[in-house]
Design a binder for these strands. Structure first.
Lengths: 289, 289
DNA sequence: CGGTCCCTTGAGAGTATTCAACCCTGGTGG
DNA sequence: CCACCAGGGTTGAATACTCTCAAGGGACCG
């Protein structure tokens, strides 16, 4: 576990300044960076018109760095800050009554953290860095105030929260209806999409989280995740080597419901080499839709 | 199915008026009612200070009635409206690639509908009335505009969305970690809490949805739901008679993880009457925490 | 009063979990 | 430099759970 490393929790302090000249001088000073509102909007993929008042907004937002294993915030901690991921990989977890954790998401670049704290004024989940991270601090009250003078920002705030809501809905749908294979396949495809969006390879990438964390996220045990990855590997849909994943048949993965059982495979290919073939047949290699 | 009844979809038209005198006269006219902003806030359980500008806001929101089986909105339909449930029972569902529906929630009095449509400008789910309903129409753009002049309202909007987000998180946690018995028990308790909040009995109530819908909501089949209700009944934790549920041991239900198997029960009580006893023993009647 | 839903219950099959053994890798300290 | 250890990962066997398929009962409605 991260117990030894997880002691440091970020505490507020000064996070925003209104004097751009002083701030500009402070860029990069002692490892800190500052972003203006336009940069924040770009990161959140909010369309900002060229002549928008947002482009001229001078307020700056502070960056903060976290090392792998550090907690960004904790359940029950007073809420006052949202975070945008500028770089790095994290997880958010819910701790239920008896200590066991449920992973809720794996935020990465351009994701927003902390939204669940707004209504109770305390964070409802916990965020932990899986790798070294660079986050931008968004003091919520200031942001809400800004959104009053920048209508686009107001709409963007609602949009980002609504998007997160829709994401959780599809998560619920997945947990409610899909088998282990379907869940793992979709998980890999969602990672692939995210990496593509960030400009990385969508075909080969590294998992930043453990099998245990994936299992928690998908409602499976770590053994089942491991077995399922092996099965997808045997079906030639992916290549697996520890944390490295290569996607070989994304169209099948995207709609996979379940793999045929060993019995069904044996029946469909009665006498053939027991090893996987170069080009996997569409049927009965996988059952989609 | 509701296919015969589900043809009518509400279409926008006029929903808000700014002349209270005319509106007042229109109350109850042709079955329609109007609510002012204060009433809407009360319904959403938003604290409004007595001297707040909200109390004096004259804008009125229209009510609309739906009959059991009617759809309020559909997936993909252009979004422009949020709805608050004033009375009645509904379900929201997601239809996945191949037609099978996943129930996402069972909204009832004071719940907000349609939030998932904000970011794509189209509804991401579908809402269906399970009983006759009275809903209040909240045109989103007008509401957002209002929230610029009433800071409390702005905060409430964020709060309501954040609350919904937290609800979905705990839903994900439940689907990811709990057994069928745990899921059904929590489902019943959440209904109980909701009924208590609405001023109805929290001990005895009617299920407004079918076993199939409950199963879809909880990620179970209808047979499993039925069997689980029977098992909770046999364990004397609840009483079941078709749609009528009586909660008999809420403290156990609230933290239930799983019921002992028939085998374990037989071992713990080797020779005793096979029927349930009046006061169920705490152990081995249920395993909590 | 026949049909359609909805609900219950049983039997059997299929999936995921549990428990356990073992391997691999990276880091640490002798 | 190497031995050792802990955490992460893989795999097997047995078990437990949930689903599927099937049959039958009851309520509501035209």
């Amino acid at each position: 576990m991260y117990s030894a490393k997880m002691s440091e929790i970020h505490s507020g302090s000064q996070t925003m300044i209104a004097q751009p000249s002083a701030a500009e001088a402070g860029r990069q000073r002692q490892g800190k960076l500052w972003s203006n509102l336009k940069e924040v909007c770009d990161l959140l993929r909010i369309q900002v018109a060229l002549n928008s008042s947002i482009a001229n907004e001078e307020i700056l937002f502070q960056h903060v760095q976290f090392k792998a294993g550090q907690r960004i915030y904790t359940i029950g901690q007073p809420f006052d800050m949202l975070y945008i991921v500028n770089s790095g990989f994290l997880k958010t977890v819910l701790i239920d009554e008896l200590g066991n954790e449920q992973v809720l998401s794996f935020p990465m670049k351009s994701d927003l953290l902390g939204v669940d704290g707004i209504h109770t004024k305390c964070y409802a989940s916990e965020a932990v860095a899986l790798s070294d991270c660079d986050l931008i601090l968004l003091p919520f009250r200031k942001l809400a105030a800004l959104s009053r003078s920048h209508v686009e920002l107001e709409h963007a705030m609602y949009g980002v929260m609504s998007r997160e809501l829709a994401r959780e809905q599809s998560m619920i749908c997945m947990l409610g209806t899909l088998s282990a294979e379907g869940r793992v396949a979709r998980f890999l495809m969602s990672l692939s999409d995210k990496f593509a969006q960030m400009g990385y390879s969508s075909k080969i990438f590294n998992l930043r989280m453990t099998r245990h964390e994936i299992g928690s996220y998908l409602g499976l045990t770590l053994e089942t995740v491991s077995r399922t990855l092996s099965a997808l590997n045997d079906a030639a849909l992916i290549g697996v080597d520890q944390k490295t994943i290569e996607l070989k048949d994304t169209s099948t993965l995207r709609t996979l419901r379940r793999l045929p059982t060993a019995k069904a495979r044996a029946k469909a290919a009665p006498v053939s080499k027991p090893k996987v073939k170069k080009s996997a047949p569409k049927y009965p290699a996988a059952i989609a839709v």
